Amino acid sequence: MRPQTGWLGRLLRNATKGPAEAPHESDVPTPVTTERIAAFLTRRGYRFRIDDDGDITGTWEGHRFWFLLLGPHGTLLQVRGRWARTVGGDERLGVLQAANDWNRDRIWPKVYLREEDGGLGVYGEVSVDLEHGATDDQLGQVVSCGLGTGVQLFSALSALLPGQEDLPEE
């Protein structure tokens, strides 16, 4: 009989091993907190601040992002970004179509428009329920996914609507 390779081989080899070792401390899910999110961003060398609501916020590629812990127990992590441009009324239909196309073709981020003073704001969100906590790697993956896919979305929109004025930096 040939030796098994790939996932089946790993499964069979692991099934014949002795008792599992205790997980390393960093492999154990722990509650997600603002401090853990800030620590991840700091390790990556990102600049951010804590706003008046106690939320982490910063600018990536010129776009504002927030890292929010939502829900009754603060266990829903949401990485929310706002496109640095405001959409005028005459471009509403085109941006709505682009948002629908994005939401149909991709999982992240969810895209929506919101009426704001002087136009429409375009937002992208990645939300994950972390009720049972997260390892450092899992937390980093959610934060990186929110930032990476948000920046991709905003770059795609910028290519569709060149020449718009950017929002002023805070």
Rank of each mutant, 00 (worst) to 15 (best):
G62Y: 05
F65L: 10
F65P: 02
W66S: 05
F67P: 00
L68W: 00
G71H: 03
G71K: 05
P72K: 12
P72N: 13
P72G: 14
G74D: 12
T75R: 07
T75C: 01
V79A: 07
A84D: 04
A84C: 05
T86D: 10
T86R: 14
T86Q: 11
G88L: 12
G88H: 03
G88N: 02
D90S: 14
D90Q: 05
E91M: 14
E91R: 15
G94R: 12
G94K: 12
V95Y: 00
L96C: 13
Q97M: 11
A99W: 10
D101L: 13
W102Y: 08
N103S: 02
I107D: 07
P109Q: 09
K110M: 09
K110V: 09
V111K: 03
V111Y: 04
E116G: 11
E116P: 05
L120P: 03
L120W: 15
G121V: 03
V122R: 01
Y123G: 13
Y123E: 10
G124K: 08
E125S: 15
V126S: 04
D129L: 13
D129K: 09
D129C: 02
L130S: 01
E131M: 11
E131F: 04
H132A: 15
T135W: 02
G140S: 09
G150L: 00
V151R: 07
V151H: 06
V151F: 02
Q152L: 15
S155E: 12
